[in-house]
């Protein structure tokens, strides 16, 4: 790299405002005064908490994948569906591409993001140098963020429930509640994650 990093500055990623960097205390936030984007928001023990939430998240996703999600019955007929079935709903015919997309958006991408956090933060929490390619892994984690749609899926279930209730009787399965908890876990985790702190730690410890 022929150019050296200009340390001591921070630039707002949204509006390109330049500031002299002051690292806030735990629980405080550094905010761009021009466009109100949060620049730095360090939390105490954030890495280990994020890790714990990632493990929780993975367990919930894997279990919710195969356990019954919603059950319906009408006129003696009965059916139950898991998240996996919802993914495979489009699997026959020309709509199978959609099955792949839905599977990626509600299962694969969220799971991959969790695995990436384990890979990036795991070694650092253990007090070692970051794993090889940790920077790339974290970059991917950030890029995947808008494509992780588990929480939208859960709200979609609510809408589907109302639509079906006119047609048949619906019961919520255990996986529904797991997905509900999952949404909370993801929200908590996003709230904990301060990308500036992670990049800073990656740089300092490598």
């Amino acid at each position: 790299m022929p150019h050296s990093q200009q340390s001591g500055y921070i630039v707002c990623p949204h509006c390109d405002a330049l500031y002299v960097q002051h690292t806030p205390e735990f629980g405080e936030r550094a905010v761009c005064t021009r466009c109100r984007t949060v620049l730095i928001a360090p939390r105490k023990n954030a890495f280990i908490r994020i890790l714990a939430l990632s493990v929780t998240n993975l367990i919930l996703v894997i279990a919710a994948l195969f356990l019954p999600f919603l059950q319906i019955s009408r006129a003696g007929f009965h059916n139950e569906t898991s998240v996996m079935d919802a993914v495979l709903a489009f699997s026959d015919g020309p709509l199978f591409v959609l099955s792949l997309a839905v599977g990626a958006l509600i299962v694969l991408v969220p799971m991959m993001r969790m695995i990436l956090t384990l890979y990036v933060l795991g070694p650092m929490v253990a007090g070692r140098a970051p794993a090889r390619g940790a920077a790339k892994a974290f970059r991917l984690f950030e890029a995947l963020k808008p494509w992780s749609m588990a929480e939208i899926f859960v709200l979609g279930c609510g809408v589907a429930l109302v639509k079906v209730s006119a047609l048949a009787q619906v019961h919520l399965g255990s996986a529904f509640w797991m997905m509900g908890v999952l949404v909370l876990v993801v929200l908590l985790q996003d709230n904990m994650m301060c990308r500036w702190s992670v990049w800073n730690a990656l740089e300092k410890r490598s």
């Binding site: 059916n79 919802a86 993914v87 709903a89 839905v102």
Partner: peptide, 18 residues
Amino acid sequence: IDVFVVAILSALVQLNAA
């Protein structure tokens, strides 16, 4: 969300003739 609703509905509402 609409796409997910369709996915859930088509997986769930498979009650043979009913």
